[in-house]
Amino acid sequence: MQVRIQGDGDEQALTDLQDWLSRDPQARQLSVAPVSTSGATMSVLHALDIVLNRGIEIANFAVAYASWRVARADAATRGARTLTHGGSTVDIGHLDGAQLADLLRRLQSEGTDTGTHQS
C-alpha cells in the first residue's frame, strides 16, 4: 500500500517528518521517497511517498507520525497533514496513532478506488 503525505505548502514540515521517520527505531525501515516538483521554485519538496507492506508497518508509521505531530505542536506545523491513497484524501493532522492506524487499515482493505473522504 502506498500513501502520500502532501506538503500542503510547508516544505519544512515534510523535511522534518522525513528526518523524524529516518530516526525513529520502528519507522526507519519504511520505504520513504521524497517527491519534488521542478519549475521556478527549483525542486521544491512536494510530498513524501511511503510504502506500507504489512500491518506492523502501518502501526509503526502511525505511531511515528502521531509522535512527530505532538513533538512539533509548538512549531505550529501547518503542513504534512494531508494523506492521499488512491482516490482518498484525508486530513490526518488531528489523529492519534491508533486512529491513524485504523484509517490506514480501512483504506488498505477498501482498495485504491474509494472516493474522497474528509474528516
Rank of each mutant, 00 (worst) to 15 (best):
Q2H: 12
R4S: 15
I5W: 07
Q6I: 00
G7R: 04
G9A: 02
G9T: 00
G9I: 01
D10H: 05
D10K: 05
D10N: 06
E11N: 05
L14M: 07
T15V: 13
L17F: 01
D19H: 00
D19L: 08
W20Q: 08
L21Y: 02
D24Q: 14
D24I: 12
R28Q: 12
Q29N: 08
Q29T: 06
Q29G: 09
S31I: 12
S31L: 13
S31Q: 11
V32L: 12
P34I: 06
P34Y: 01
S38E: 01
S38H: 07
A40N: 05
A40K: 01
T41W: 08
T41K: 10
T41H: 13
S43M: 15
L45C: 00
A47G: 11
I50V: 12
V51Y: 10
R54Q: 11
G55D: 15
E57A: 12
I58A: 10
A59D: 05
A62W: 02
A64C: 07
A64L: 07
Y65M: 09
A66N: 03
A66R: 08
V70P: 07
D74K: 14
A75D: 06
A76C: 04
A76W: 06
R78L: 08
G79I: 01
G79K: 01
A80Y: 01
R81L: 11
T82W: 02
G86L: 01
G86A: 07
G86Q: 04
G87A: 10
S88H: 03
S88Q: 02
S88N: 07
T89M: 13
T89I: 15
D91T: 01
D91K: 03
I92D: 03
I92H: 04
I92F: 06
G97K: 12
G97S: 14
L100M: 11
A101M: 09
D102R: 06
D102S: 00
L104F: 11
R106T: 13
G111E: 09
T114W: 13
T116S: 15
Q118F: 13
